[in-house]
Design a binder for these strands. Structure first.
Lengths: 240, 240
DNA sequence: AAGTGGTCTAGACCACGTG
DNA sequence: ACGTGGTCTAGACCACTTC
């Protein structure tokens, strides 16, 4: 591989590997060629391939198993990978996700803007329920363009455990990056109150997020509402 | 440097450098020796030193400036490094932090447990206010052991812009890691309502965190309450 | 035993910022 | 011009998993 200006070798290798992953050259959970073989293929040294793969491992696109190989990560669910901690307890729990409904709607002004679509563009609206210890603690609403994700099927989504990101990846080869999250405390509206079995206007934790693909195109807009009476939503701060 | 069992060379170098930082060998924002010089000093190659420093850069203990050198990061404030986004807006804002009070109290059962102290151990209670665009949007309460942080001074804390983490680092050589954060939506109590100028029982976003040092000893427990009527708290999701 | 990721070296050159 | 971080190589050996 020849070096181009304004881009280091390992970055070129990284992009090359990433685009090969996106075309589905190595299907999910299948091993990539060894670092040595990739090095030969690209005409660089093993160390350079390693550095390229390091980046993709850090961003959770690949994972490595020593003595075995390097593999493509299956996209994790955004809801499913949230953690909830019971008050005054140390350990955090993994929630269970359940698909409620999946209907076609039309984009309003706001959604058309954030998803970069025209007004009244067709959208899928997916509603999901979040359970911890069997108890409903959250409800989620996700919106995706029907053009990019045609023939979206609720049965298929249920097969994948309600994991929208896995569905985007496996069925449409759209790989989503981690997204910004916005937290607010808002009074529960009727819909949320009913599903969460709480009073209207009780405080609920609202989490808004916008998932983009690796070309930075916004693909999925989501909003979730959590009852935090018994469980707090947990995350990791990135300060040194 | 001789290789020990069960630890790679670059990890040893990393720990060595980290402990040198903690003893204050290279004061804040002063350059470390060059990678070549450190390599000689430790008797390893430059690549190994680089890999060691990579880890510390990733965890935000060090930062690099190409062509200049490697420097010790000055601890960032936990509150001050939060980001707030106006609803329906893209850009996020940096808040201003103001120290309200600093008094000595005694640990109750809960705080004694999480901070690993005996009951009624002396604690500093620091209250701070968070402003965005001049408007008060949050109030914070932090608790630190008086034994570890003797003679804590409110004037000094104000000098540092209310940055508790910077104070722990600069004045007591206690370097705090990033901490877990727990989010809840709760009804505003009287104290919060008064400071945030909202009604009692209005929803407020509660953020609890526990900062530990690099030996995993819990040092600072904090709770913040935010009014999220105009601004949402923003963070970054770590999913691939 | 063979193949994989994981570490390490010695040396080289490039890109950048400062003086 | 100089010194710094940043990249890259060719080759070596280790640790781990699988067969």
């Amino acid at each position: 591989m020849k070096k181009l200006i304004a881009q280091s070798l390992y970055q070129q290798v990284m992009r090359e590997v990433l685009s090969d992953i996106e075309t589905g050259m190595w299907q999910g959970d299948e091993a990539l060629p060894s670092e040595q073989e990739l090095a030969q293929r690209f005409g660089v040294s093993q160390g350079t391939v390693r550095k390229a793969l390091d980046v993709l491992v850090a961003s959770n696109v690949l994972y490595r198993r020593q003595g075995v190989g390097t593999f493509v990560t299956d996209a994790g669910d955004d809801l499913g990978s949230m953690r909830f901690a019971a008050l005054n307890e140390h350990a955090a729990r993994t929630p269970k996700v359940e698909v409620l409904s999946c209907v076609k709607i039309h984009a309003g002004e706001y959604l058309a803007e954030v998803l970069n679509l025209r007004r009244s563009a067709p959208l899928w609206q997916v509603r999901r329920l979040v359970r911890v210890e069997g108890e409903v603690i959250g409800v989620d609403e996700s919106l995706l363009s029907e053009v990019t994700f045609p023939a979206l099927d609720m049965r298929r989504l249920r097969e994948l455990g309600g994991n929208i990101r896995a569905m985007c990846w496996r069925d449409y080869r759209v790989r989503l990056k981690g997204s910004d999250m916005r937290y607010r405390a808002v009074p529960a509206a009727q819909t949320e109150a009913r599903l969460l079995q709480i009073e209207v206007n009780e405080p609920v934790l609202q989490v808004i997020r916008l998932s983009k693909d690796f070309e930075d195109v916004p693909q999925v807009w989501s909003a979730a509402w959590f009852c935090s009476e018994k469980y707090a939503l947990q995350s990791v701060e990135m300060i040194g």
